[in-house]
Design a binder for these strands. Structure first.
Length: 423
RNA sequence: GGAGAUGUGGCAGAGUGGUCGAAUGCGGUAGUCUUGAAAACUAUUGUACCGCAAGGUACCGGGGGUUCGAAUCCCUCCAUCUCCGCCA
């Protein structure tokens, strides 16, 4: 969420910039400022009353020591009266804080100045494209058929065990999956990321910390008995490692990489988008996360994008890089680049990575700060990106590399798979 | 799952109803001294909110309660440790 003081000081900019999301923030911003004024007034009243009560309480203590019962009792009556008022103000304060938070939760992040105006994914800007689109022969088939043909993934078996969207990877399919995970992790570690294996379930505070709660509750699997949520992405547990932490400037940059399965309910998804590996309830992903000094976060974003580009190049997949327009930008992001690979048999681009700078939007909720050179605490910038999401990579690999003799494994993966063809 | 113990500032560790945001030690920072360093000495050293400021308010695992007043008493949740049980 945005900081109230920032909104107050840059009201027009906030409203103007958020318009790029096709979101009119005028109302919310005004309500926020009004509610914050109320909150401040209450705070002042409460502080004054508390100060008074503290003085009286001390006086009573003094009187008791001196044995002046009567004076003490008289003051006690005053104090009791004050106490009532304090309770009232406290209740106001709690309500106002809650109202204010609810308003702040509804206000999306301010897009970076280079984010283009736009309504949907059709308005995203292609900034880079590499690798020729392969032309497959007319017998080429989509990955869900390839998976069946070579017995790599069993979707029906997953349905039996759990339900739709929980595939079973088998044999060379499983090995290939594991090879990709190891390859992605190794490449990130080469770049100085520290590997972590985080919990796959998180508590409510973590969900709030990275912004999945309270809004996107319906997208996560919720274990009600223990009040825990299955992670929709490793971003949640990894970023929350830095919740309520005050860093030193010398700690920057913090770089973590983690492989985890991800669990998403995907309520409301339908149609051909969900076919095969295109959209799953459980899928594997290697995630990179960086905590940066605000001055460096955009340079770091570029480095992260380059890292992901490198992975796709290594895998010899045709890809393109998109700068998301305001309408397609996620709620918490200030700037997001998507990477898509071309799936030759489906003849469409598949999103395989999303790399974002959240600036201080997440940090504000997380309370992740650092001490600047003046010893003042400031919010950090958080960034993350998929490097990479497995299923669609697998889909593209299977489809693009199919030949009469089988599916060719890219050079870089052979040391990990131990085979160079699936047939 | 059962029984018991514990939870205080970066760390260690006092504090069992009032003058405690909290002794003391270590650590950190700045300075004095020194050719330099160490030692010693001096000062400083949590977070958030309100306020132009002076200053005020809140926070002693989380939440709630008792009281004029809570780190201290009560309830509850969480975590850690010890013992027992179960178990990959």
């Amino acid at each position: 969420m945005l900081q109230t003081t920032y909104i107050r000081e840059h009201k027009e900019l906030v409203i103007e910039r958020i318009k790029r999301r096709n979101f009119n923030a005028t109302d919310i911003v005004n309500q926020i400022l009004k509610k914050d004024d109320e909150r401040k007034a209450t705070q002042q009243k409460l502080d004054a009353l508390s100060a008074e009560a503290n003085v009286i309480a001390k006086q009573i203590g003094g009187f008791f020591k001196e044995g002046k019962q009567e004076e003490a009792n008289e003051l006690k009556m005053q104090a009791t009266k004050l106490k009532g008022e304090i309770e009232n103000q406290k209740m106001f304060q709690v309500d106002e804080k809650k109202d204010l938070d609810e308003l702040l939760y509804r206000l999306p992040n301010i897009p970076n100045e280079i984010v283009p105006q736009g309504n949907s994914d059709e308005d995203n800007e292609v900034v880079f494209e590499e690798g020729g689109v392969p032309s497959l022969d007319e017998n080429a088939i989509p990955h869900w058929e390839l998976a069946k043909k070579y017995d790599l993934i069993d979707f029906e078996l997953g349905v039996k065990i759990t339900g739709a969207g929980f595939p079973v990877y088998k044999g060379k399919g499983a090995k290939l999956q594991r090879a990709l995970i190891s390859f992605f992790l190794d490449k990130a570690i080469e770049q100085g990321y520290e590997e972590v294996i985080p919990p796959l379930m998180v508590n409510e505070s973590s969900g709030i910390g990275t912004g999945q709660l309270p809004d996107k509750e319906g997208q996560m699997y919720h274990m009600q008995v223990d009040d825990l949520y299955m992670i929709p992405t490793a971003e949640v547990p990894i970023t929350n490692m830095y919740r309520d932490v005050i860093l030193k400037e010398s700690d920057f940059p913090i770089k973590n990489v983690g492989y985890t399965p991800c669990f998403r309910r995907e309520a409301g998804s339908y149609g051909s988008d969900v076919r095969g590996l295109n959209r799953l309830h459980q899928f594997d992903k290697v995630e990179i996360v960086q905590i940066e000094h605000p001055n460096n976060s955009y340079a770091t974003l570029d480095v992260m994008v380059e890292h992901v580009k490198g992975l796709l190049k290594d895998l010899e997949l045709p890809y393109r890089l998109l700068k998301l327009c305001g309408g397609d930008l996620s709620f918490a992001s200030a700037l997001t680049y998507d990477l898509e690979v071309f799936s030759a048999a489906q003849v469409k681009w598949l999103e395989v990575s999303s790399v974002s700078n959240f600036e201080s939007f997440q940090a504000n909720r997380l309370k992740c700060r650092y001490k600047d050179e003046n010893g003042k605490t400031q919010l950090v910038h958080t960034l993350n990106g998929s490097a990479l999401a497995l299923p669609r990579i697998l889909a593209a690999l299977l489809e693009n590399n199919q030949t009469e003799n089988g599916i060719k494994i890219p050079e870089v993966l052979i040391p990990y798979t131990g085979f160079d063809i699936i047939n």
